[in-house]
């Protein structure tokens, strides 16, 4: 059985020392090992950004695509091969700016993949512009006088879009993060996981310390029930989106692939390409 070391490769990440993304990588590797997967059963796909490099730092199948399109890529892969563990990953710009449309629709569709958003509230790779997660007043290269746009509330948005799994982690709380990712992978549908992953180079406001002071883990809330959608929404509002842990899960709704009429358990890619002659002849009858 593979250990988390088997999910490591020999590439040294080019992230800045201290970047929150290191912890996300480690948590993902541990979660996969804890669940008993082998590297070849896993595909990690990613968008473009500092965070997007993550697919190259894990020993598994990896695909580093284009900015904002990791979710369609991951959904397409899962449609082709439902036996794979498919993890999509990217930054908050990737998932909530250029790729937001896909995020909402992937949530609605509920294909069984796990989505990790490394949310640093800034654009890292392009060197420090505002992101749709930046707070009002946040000064960046592109908002020298402070951002005047309201930040996106991704998890409230996910709940509103019908998410069946909503969680939030923090790079400093690795145990919680491993648990969230494990549960996300096990969840039979789309798992939306936002991760506070500080950018130590460009974001001097939302730092590790800032997050430590502001996050509200669900287990500090008495009687928190992750199956209660209203409560989840309410608590997210009350904590201004700083709630961490598994915030909501609906285990009743089947995944997309289980709802497609006639869709087989056997992955598409294992089915024969060649159509039977009889089936072909039958198809032509409609046009005779």
């Amino acid at each position: 059985m593979a250990t988390f070391k088997d999910f490591r490769n020999d590439v040294a990440p080019n992230w800045c020392p201290g970047c929150g993304d290191f912890a996300v990588l480690a948590a993902m590797q541990r979660a996969l090992a804890n669940l008993g997967y082998e590297p070849e059963q896993v595909a990690v796909l990613s968008g473009i950004g500092c965070s997007g490099r993550i697919s190259g730092y894990i020993h598994a199948y990896g695909f580093h695509g284009v900015h904002g399109r990791v979710l369609p890529l991951a959904q397409g892969l899962k449609m082709a091969n439902r036996d794979l563990v498919v993890i999509a990953a990217g930054g908050d710009g990737d998932g909530y700016a250029i790729g937001l449309n896909h995020t909402i629709h992937a949530i609605r569709r509920n294909i069984d993949i796990t989505y990790l958003v490394m949310d640093n509230q800034i654009y890292g790779l392009t060197k420090g512009q505002t992101s749709p997660r930046s707070a009002v007043g946040f000064q960046t290269k592109s908002t020298p006088k402070g951002s005047i746009e309201a930040p996106i509330a991704p998890l409230q948005m996910a709940l509103a879009a019908g998410a069946t799994f909503v969680a939030q982690g923090f790079s400093s709380d690795i145990n919680q993060l491993v648990n969230i990712i494990e549960e996300g992978i096990r969840h039979p549908g789309f798992a939306m996981i936002n991760i506070f992953s500080p950018c130590v180079t460009f974001n001097k406001i939302n730092t590790y310390d800032w997050f430590k002071q502001n996050v509200v883990p669900t287990d500090t809330i008495e009687g928190y029930d992750r199956h209660d959608r209203n409560k989840a929404m309410q608590t997210l509002m009350e904590t201004d989106g700083m709630l961490t842990g598994i915030i909501y899960q609906d285990q009743e709704t089947p995944s997309y692939q289980d709802r497609i009429p006639g869709f087989r358990k056997e992955p598409l890619v294992k089915q024969p390409l060649k159509l039977e002659r009889e089936a072909f002849v039958e198809l032509l009858e409609e046009f005779a």
């Binding site: 595909a43 796909l45 695909f63 695509g65 284009v66 904002g68 399109r69 979710l71 369609p72 890529l73 991951a74 959904q75 397409g76 892969l77 899962k78 449609m79 082709a80 091969n81 794979l84 449309n101 896909h102 629709h105 598409l268 890619v269 390409l273």
Partner: peptide, 17 residues
């Protein structure tokens, strides 16, 4: 955008899409 990228994802997975 999603249409083509999904098709690319499925082809990457070995299906014809």
């Amino acid at each position: 955008l999603a249409a083509i990228v999904m098709a690319i994802g499925a082809n990457y997975g070995g299906a014809r899409a």
